Simulated assay, not measured.
Amino acid sequence: MSSKIPNGKSPTLQDIAAVTGVSPSTISRVLNNSENVKQGIRDKVIQAAGELGYQKVQKQNTEAPENNVIGLIIPDIMNPFFPALIKGIQNTAHFQDYNIILCDSENDTSVAEAQLRQLMISHIRGLIYIPSSEDSGLGEKLVKLPIPVVFLDRKINSDIINYVGSENSEGAYNATRYLLSLGHRDILYLAGEGVLSTEKERYAGFKRAMDEENINIDEDYILSCGYSYEIAFKKVNSWLDKSRKVTAIFASDDLMAYGVLKALKQKKLRCPEDISVMGYDDLPFSDLLSLTTVSQPAYQMGQNAVLLLLDLINKRKAAPQEIILPNSMIIRNTCGKY
């Protein structure tokens, strides 16, 4: 995509059209949240408009304005995966004339419930919610709210929710198949928080790939590290002292993979010559560390969460709805042949 328009000139629909190849009339429909525009075109236009710095001209309205506000509750604002999600949500909401109220529940259900009460007092028109590992039934309560709710990235066990996520199981399956294709059979798996849907799906993908090769998964080759860099470093460091055979380590998120790389360095083990390492998420630092990983479309997930929520608010769609976006393998330098 092109950068912002130079010399302080305000970008126009024609500028967006030049970048995207989409007609100005279609661009106008996207920016006005109209129906009958394909999702791929909608995403392309919104992304280009954000990068060009386009701002809609506000029409004067003598009627009382609607409270175009969306609530967003996330479990941990320090989680490095969430900023791209938030950016996608914020940019997309902005182009649809909506504001965002962001709340960080700090993985505490009582805090999230208090934040929800304040959001409802603020008359939000819809809510985007990322469950925490300590959800404690809050997700089930949200389904009963009088406003639309979209679960993002993580979901609860319910068939009546609206959900936007990515192909966690398929992503982990493809990552494991890649390691197997390199000749690895003794693979240590680092699990995140087992109660979360993301971890359940990723482990299912890992297991499916191993089962296809008739490889038994020894319980000693599964370490629960809670998506934590520090825990992964300590547990892998200790596990390596036991002299078990391992040729590859698959961490179900990049933070844990960073901990693995630190442990290997401390043990003076080479990556990938001695042990290969696979991550998951493709966080910003993963490129700098040349980590082979599975990339999630975080920004696009945020975009789609807002667009789905607006469809529900404006009754263009009826619940339940589900949008699952594909992941992709990013092959760098931490995996080698065995």
Rank of each mutant, 00 (worst) to 15 (best):
S238F: 01
S238C: 00
S238T: 09
L240Y: 08
D241C: 04
D241P: 00
D241Q: 11
K242S: 05
S243I: 00
S243T: 07
S243F: 01
R244T: 00
R244S: 01
R244D: 01
T247V: 03
T247C: 14
T247W: 06
A248I: 10
A248F: 13
A248T: 06
F250I: 09
A251L: 05
A251T: 07
A251C: 02
A251M: 10
D253V: 01
D253I: 02
D253P: 03
D253C: 14
D254P: 05
M256A: 10
A257Q: 08
A257L: 10
Y258V: 00
G259I: 05
G259K: 01
V260G: 09
V260E: 03
L261F: 05
L261W: 07
K262H: 08
K265V: 00
Q266W: 00
Q266F: 07
Q266K: 15
K267C: 07
K268L: 12
K268I: 00
K268A: 09
L269P: 10
C271G: 03
C271M: 09
P272L: 03
D274W: 07
D274P: 06
I275N: 11
S276W: 08
V277R: 02
V277F: 08
M278V: 04
M278S: 12
G279P: 00
G279C: 02
Y280A: 01
D281S: 15
D281H: 13
D281G: 13
L283A: 06
L283P: 01
L283K: 06
P284G: 11
P284T: 08
P284R: 04
F285C: 03
S286N: 10
S286A: 15
L288G: 00
L288Q: 09
L289R: 04
L291R: 07
T292H: 11
T293L: 11
V294T: 12
V294M: 08
S295K: 15
P297V: 11
P297D: 05
P297H: 09
P297S: 11
Y299S: 03
Y299E: 14
Y299L: 09
Y299W: 14
Q300D: 07
Q300N: 05
M301D: 05
M301G: 02
M301R: 04
G302W: 02
G302A: 04
Q303A: 03
Q303N: 14
Q303M: 15
Q303R: 12
N304V: 01
N304D: 12
V306W: 09
V306F: 13
L308Q: 12
L309R: 01
L309V: 06
L310P: 02
L310G: 07
D311Y: 12
L312G: 02
L312W: 01
I313T: 01
